[in-house]
Write a protein that binds this DNA or RNA. Structure first.
Lengths: 206, 206
DNA sequence: AGCCGATCAATGATCGATCATAGTTCAGTC
DNA sequence: GACTGAACTATGATCGATCATTGATCGGCT
């Protein structure tokens, strides 16, 4: 049982908390690209031991926010144009696959997608990206392929999109029309929806 | 400088070695699906401490060979038909993307691919799969997208293909014709090569 | 100067021990 | 008997300390 307003508390381990601290520091620029991340220094600073910091670093490595060399530690990754250029084709390809798999689930059932579009229309600031990604995540979920979902999430969509938008001052607002088009394509089971979504994602690319 | 035959020795950490031990035990069936993997037990058995075992387990989790619950440890994953059914569409989608990106690199330069086809033709036993995967990896590499390559590798292609083939007694030998077709399509820059590769991969699906 | 080899400091990798949580057992109560 | 909750156990999570590798520093040699 649970109190109705119980915050469904996520008793998260230290590693996860430290990961979030480091993500914040990297995305905020407090940790500069190329800067070393010394396990013991972070541990001392946060009042924890080396172990959970190591664990957090492994997660950051999986997100490609840091790079590590064996026996030589981790440093904040230098985000190059190549990194951003590589990100979008992979994301686009995964979402194309997702769209194809999701097609039969979404045919005639695009309410959820339209809900995201509506919320996106009235959103401002960082919420724009959040809702936009929620729209795409809805499609990936609808594909009903958990592996695909995991792989897609493992790209670190939010973070890398944020980094890309910040770096390139990408326009984020003008894409509502395309979202509507895509939702429509799903509704009428248009076989081109996969390619449409692919091309849509690629428009965010630098 | 390097002695010519220096084995470019990979002084690998304990974690990586332990990972390999556990992979072997899982693929060989010594560790049965559902079986718990107790960190301290493995550590004692191998004469190491808990830390590198934990690290190995995290890697196995990324390969989806074990599943872990917070504070409750890891157990060998139950490989369901759903797992195998989900694997191939994702792999196929990634390789379709790879083929599209690789097209301009490979147009007229398919010697490497043909080399793999030749070696595959004379291979036997487990080498068949190894060479077949090398053919596909060559394409993924030719895409020139490191992220795509990492994501593709992160699927655990070798392991999951092995598991699938073993489970379903999939025929592996008869695909040489398709490999030749695909190499030809690359040579003449056929725009359908992406879809061809996609469909080819899906033929391995159960 | 430029090239070695020894020494040293920094720090990742690993260890052994402890803390905290989840599941189990079992006595007590109704 | 079924439920409750307090021990108890197993074990993941975390800790503090040590081992081992790396890159830097320095002196001697040519």
């Amino acid at each position: 049982m649970n109190a109705l307003n119980a915050p469904a508390l996520v008793r998260t381990g230290l590693g996860d908390q430290i990961r979030q601290v480091l993500i914040d520091r990297i995305t905020s620029g407090e940790l500069q690209p190329g800067e070393r991340i010394v396990e013991r220094r972070i541990a001392a600073e946060l009042g924890v031991s080396q172990a959970p910091v190591r664990e957090a670093l492994r997660q950051l490595e999986a997100l490609r926010l840091v790079e590590t060399m064996p026996n030589r530690g981790a440093r904040v990754r230098e985000f190059t144009e190549v990194d951003f250029a590589e990100f979008f084709p992979v994301r686009a390809g995964l979402e194309e696959t997702a769209a194809e798999l999701a097609a039969r689930h979404l045919a005639g059932r695009v309410e959820a997608l339209e809900g995201h579009i509506e919320r996106l229309a009235t959103a401002e600031g960082p919420d724009v990206m959040r809702h936009s990604i929620a729209f795409h995540r809805e499609i990936v979920d609808a594909a009903g392929n958990r592996l695909l979902r995991e792989v897609w999430e493992s790209l670190g969509i939010e973070i890398w999109t944020t980094l890309s938008v910040r770096r390139h001052d990408t326009e984020l607002c003008g894409k509502t029309a395309e979202h509507i088009e895509i939702a429509d394509a799903f509704r009428r089971a248009d076989p081109r929806v996969g390619r449409m979504l692919h091309d849509h994602v690629m428009k965010y690319a630098p």
